[in-house]
Design a protein around this nucleic acid. Structure first.
Length: 816
RNA sequence: GGGCGGGUGGUGAAAUUGGUAGACACGCUACUCUUAGGAAGUAGUGCCGUAAGGCAUGGGAGUUCAAGUCUCCCCUCGCCCACCA
């Protein structure tokens, strides 16, 4: 083959690898294991995104390097296929979600295979497969059994015209995405998971995992642990006997407060109890139960009620987002007593205080807190500047609060795992017995949610009406489904044993793949790469489930992921997100056709720093393509001769060893772009050098192999034929793949330069460069510097104050 | 409002973590070659300047012999915020 024909090469090797199953992980192996994981994709209708390719290639490179380093590698793939877009598509077109999902995964699979990822396709999973979600439901039953799943009333987005609950995504600028009607809130009973019970451990155990620092920080901020104090403020009711509940109570003396005024107290949470002397008013969340309790005492109730109504229709983000314009209203007729100063202070309600955090009430210290200050200034509330900050200990109780809230676990949707619960008029809520799992989704034709806000499943009476598992009486199924986070909270466990129908995965396989291996401190998934957007939800949810399973002694480690890294987004130039609506989505199929998968992989790794967002530019694709053509030319021009290549020239071997080191280290640090640039330099030098050896060229192919698996395999196999007669190509046995050859080592001695060029500065400005022997004594270097013609020009007639010498780097002469 | 991450040539970016700013690649300019190709090679390419030299990492201050890197203030862009996944 004369020219580099990516189409032939890529198709050929993909089918050879696939037939031989060379990337399938072994469950029983003497080799050390490596478990590399990417977030399994949601098979959207628009096909594979170039962003998928970036993260998949990154982990593919690591997996391939690990194989070459002698590891038994598991690099699995599957589909996170439940979800809203598929359901909405089904509602629109009437095509069943099962069919939509199958069509989409078929496209994704084909696209992923065309990119030559070394996935173990024999372990492919799909969250919408009843054999899979049986175990998602099973884990839910365990959570229920342990009291971690419960029901509570929460607010959902509600479109009054369409009469359906809306996801946040379906609310655009406060209006229903479908009909444009202004969206309101509605109370709905929801399933909740008590993730807050694990808050402390989810925070603390971050100490022991190898996550990028920014990921740890974001998780910690999300969990929002803060240690502070809970302080009780008593409520002073200046107009006694208005409230029938307080009827008959003895009249209390007015200010100063004597401590027996009312039954009502309000707890506040503060991280700064020392500032209590500066607390000049108090603010409650509009949902605070004190407000309705003291309804009859509040003299401006009509106004207050109106304000609460307004707030109810805002989201938390809107409530805290309206910067500068704070809103609020005073609860007239009642006062609180500052327990430190014993003074009477006004009570306000305002939407910047959230009911879901802390106690839903704050003491406002406008002298100390910016938000409180702005609020005080707007509403003319007193600000006490020089208050004492010590001497108050009596009223505080040390407590820990978390921002983290329990996980709203139900969805009023069709395309999700049915929550395996049955409601019986006599027995109450009854879990579906394990033997009846999975509770399969019924096949229906209409996925439209019901007018009552219930799931579409509620309309299917055949499915809903069942016998109670306990009393065999009439009962109804739970019609809510799980959020799509459910299936993704444990999928990495299923990969270890994807076909098991007795357990979610066998102990044996879990211990092997998820256990703390000999050379792995932490264990679990050894390296998990994903997007930053999943840091607070998916990552936290799956850590929570894993810890729960660990507590049940069902998994071997308390943390699921040993190491977590993240990729940046690919933007469509101009800092724009790629989206269908903007019409700027790049189709990988076209690029593979024109340039080939190897070029595309290389381009995506070369485009910029892996953990940062980068902008796409198809015109630059030609650079990596030219590089591969160069690699091809070197192989073709030298291997045409049976004798192979002559003995190596020293310099190229030295550069090769430097490159092996650079590439080896850059892969570990995910600095793919600089790894590629160093290989480009090597290729350019190799092409210039007539005398490179086969050995050196093979090593070059090996370090390039994880990036460009097809072309390197082809060239490697061609070299294997050198000087040997293996018969015609068709009957040639499959020689050892480059992808299982041994990762080249570099020789540290060979890398060291004997001579180095150093910079010479005068007062910090570079004036010239000189050559010195590596490690040459300082005095001799300085002598050379001071004798240098260029330097002499700058120093004659001046006083040398100092000479700063950085070994093998630079000399800075400071003159006055 | 909160959280996280950015801002370096015409473009994507690099910079041994305080030590020669712009590696590598795209683009552009000139030349060489001829199996005229989606070639390849060589040289050049931050800005101003004929040059000497000066100026340059969003803006401003500071620390230092030395700052893209550290400190402070300001501007600006992107992503996420619990029912998108």
């Amino acid at each position: 083959m004369k020219n580099y024909d990516h189409k032939k090469i890529e198709k050929k090797w993909q089918s050879v690898w696939d037939k031989k199953g060379i990337y399938n992980a072994q469950n029983n192996s003497k080799k050390p294991k490596f478990y590399g994981l990417i977030e399994f994709p949601y098979p959207s209708g628009s096909g594979l995104h170039v962003g998928h390719i970036r993260s998949n290639t990154a982990m593919d490179i690591i997996s391939r390097k690990r194989r070459m380093e002698g590891y038994n590698v598991l690099y699995p793939i599957g589909w996170d296929a439940f979800g809203l877009p598929t359901e909405n598509y089904a509602i629109k077109t009437g095509v069943h979600p099962i069919k939509v999902t199958k069509d989409n995964t078929d496209i994704f699979r084909k696209q992923l295979k065309a990119l030559g990822f070394s996935f173990d396709w024999s372990r492919e999973i799909n969250t919408t497969d009843p054999k899979y979600y049986k175990w998602t439901q099973w884990i839910f039953l365990k959570l229920l059994e342990k009291g971690l799943a419960y029901k509570a009333r929460t607010l959902i987005n509600w479109c009054p015209k369409d009469k359906i609950g809306l996801a946040n995504e379906e609310v655009v600028a406060g209006c229903c995405e479908r009909c444009g009607t202004s969206v309101g809130k509605r109370e709905k009973e929801q399933w909740m998971l008590a993730i807050t019970k694990y808050a402390e451990r989810l925070d603390k155990d971050l100490d022991d995992v190898d996550y990028l620092e920014k990921i740890k920080i974001q998780q910690r901020n999300w969990i929002g642990k803060s240690v502070g104090a809970e302080i009780e403020f008593k409520i002073y009711l200046p107009q006694p006997h208005l409230n029938p509940l307080l009827e008959g109570e003895e009249e209390f003396s007015p200010f100063p407060f004597q401590g027996k005024a009312g039954d009502e107290v309000v707890k506040v949470f503060t991280t700064r109890p020392d500032t209590i002397f500066g607390a000049t008013y108090m603010v409650l969340a509009p949902e605070h139960n004190l407000i309705t309790n003291l309804k009859l005492r509040i003299t401006n109730w009509a106004e207050v009620e109106k304000y609460i109504k307004e707030v109810k229709n805002k989201t938390d983000i809107e409530r805290t987002a309206e910067d500068k314009i704070k809103t609020g209203i005073e609860l007239k007729g009642i006062k609180a007593i500052n327990p430190a100063t014993k003074e009477e202070i006004p009570i306000w309600i305002a939407d910047y205080v959230l009911a879901t955090y802390g106690t839903g009430a704050i003491m406002a210290v406008p002298a100390d807190d910016m938000r409180d200050r702005k609020f005080a200034e707007k509403f003319n509330l007193p600000i006490v500047e020089n208050y004492t900050k010590t001497g108050f200990e009596d009223f505080r109780k040390k407590v820990t609060k978390f921002k983290l809230r329990d996980w709203v676990f139900s969805r009023q949707r069709y395309w999700g795992e049915p929550i395996p619960v049955i409601h019986c008029a006599d027995c109450g809520m009854v879990p579906v017995p394990e033997k009846d799992l999975p509770v399969e989704l019924p096949k229906v034709k209409n996925y439209q949610p019901t007018d009552s806000g219930e799931s579409p499943l509620a309309n299917i009476s055949k499915w809903v009406n069942v016998k109670c598992p306990k009393c065999k009486g009439k009962a109804k199924r739970e019609t809510d489904t799980m959020p799509n986070w459910a299936g993704s909270s444990w999928y990495f466990l299923r990969y270890t044993d994807p076909k098991n129908n007795k357990e979610f995965a066998s102990k044996k396989n879990l211990n092997y793949w998820m256990g703390p291996g000999k050379d792995h401190r932490q264990g679990g998934v050894n390296w998990y790469n994903g997007g930053m957007e999943h840091t607070t939800l998916h990552l936290l949810y799956s850590r929570f489930w894993h810890k729960f399973l660990y507590d049940l002694k069902l998994v071997p480690t308390s943390e699921p992921y040993e190491k977590r890294t993240s990729h940046g987004m690919i933007l469509a130039g101009e800092g724009e997100k790629m989206s269908k609506s903007k019409g700027n989505v790049v189709n990988p199929d076209d690029i593979i056709k024109t340039y080939g998968a190897d070029t595309l992989r290389l381009y995506e790794m070369f485009i910029g720093p892996f953990d940062q967002s980068v902008s796409w530019n198809t015109d630059s694709m030609i650079g990596p393509r030219r590089f591969l053509e160069k690699v091809w030319r070197i192989g073709m021009s030298r291997t045409g001769f049976d004798t192979g290549m002559s003995k190596a020239g020293f310099d190229i071997t030295k550069l090769l060893h430097k490159t092996i080191k650079k590439v080896s280290e850059d892969i570990e640090g995910m600095n793919y772009n600089t790894a590629i640039s160093s290989m480009m330099i090597l290729a350019t030098e190799m092409e210039k050098d007539e005398n490179i050896s086969i050995d050196d060229y093979k090593k070059f192919l090996q370090i390039l192999a994880p990036f460009a698996p097809h072309i390197t395999e082809e060239l490697w196999q061609n070299l294997a034929l050198q000087g040997r007669t293996l018969g015609p190509l068709k009957v040639r046995p499959f020689p050892a793949s480059i992808h299982f050859s041994e990762w080249p080592k570099w020789d540290e001695k060979m890398i060291k330069d004997k001579e180095v060029k150093i910079a010479v500065q005068i007062n910090g400005k570079v004036r010239t460069e000189i050559m010195i022997q590596a490690g040459e004594p300082e005095k001799e270097v300085e002598k050379k510097v001071l004798e240098n013609q260029v330097i002499l020009k700058y120093i004659t007639g001046k006083e040398i104050k100092r000479i700063i010498h950085i070994k093998n780097r630079l000399v800075n002469v400071v003159v006055v």
